[in-house]
Design a protein around this nucleic acid. Structure first.
Lengths: 101, 101
DNA sequence: TAGACAATTAGCTAAATAACTAAATGAAGA
DNA sequence: TCTTCATTTAGTTATTTAGCTAATTGTCTA
């Protein structure tokens, strides 16, 4: 739980997940999308793995990463539901937009 | 965006939000629910304020904190929607439950 | 089997985080 | 006004985090 939110707290890791949303990618292909070193990216992958947000499978020389959408879904929507959010909430009390015109 | 997930990454702050879900509470009343010092709790409130997840209003000697549900909703559900989650997703591809029995 | 290549691990540094105590601020009441 | 009470700020410490380079591991392929 904490691990998921910690993983999502870093923009690089969120971007990794967005890339994986399109298709599975190898560690190297993922790293090519960023300016950080491979070891730095590997550490990010490790955080995502520990949060169980991605799955890593070895394929020859490469490691293929896949997003685990159900885990992301359970974490985000499960947590949101705990606050009564997510169903059909057109009008909650707080809007923070139209106050004090 | 990052600020919201960073705020949610700490279990104490998630618990604070859960308490505020029931009703607005003063800094002191909130602190009474935890074993940490007041300054430590104040720092947590500060993180929640910077993430715009709570609203603080002064009332006499006290400061009353209120959750901003719409901000939480926008962050969680907005992010989830970016992954195609949240609508009516009975069957996505990945389940991570029924693999390898 | 030797080299090349992909990825991770080891080891380091700087910055951020979460905790504490002590001090400061600011409002209410005696 | 002086004291008390609620909260935040200041300043310290230990731990974690995110980045790096260099070294290691492990798999292909020439």
């Amino acid at each position: 739980m904490s691990n998921v939110f910690k993983a999502l707290a870093d923009p690089t890791r969120r971007r990794v997940l967005e890339l994986l949303r399109e298709q599975p990618l190898s560690a190297g292909d993922l790293s090519d999308h960023f300016e950080f070193s491979k070891p730095t990216m590997s550490a990010h992958f490790s955080v995502l793995r520990e949060a169980n947000l991605v799955d890593a499978t070895k394929s020859g020389k490469s490691v293929i990463y896949r997003i685990k959408l159900s885990v992301l879904e359970d974490a985000l929507l499960g947590f949101a539901q705990g606050f009564g959010l997510g169903a059909s909430n057109a009008d909650t009390q707080d809007t923070d937009k139209e106050e004090s015109s």
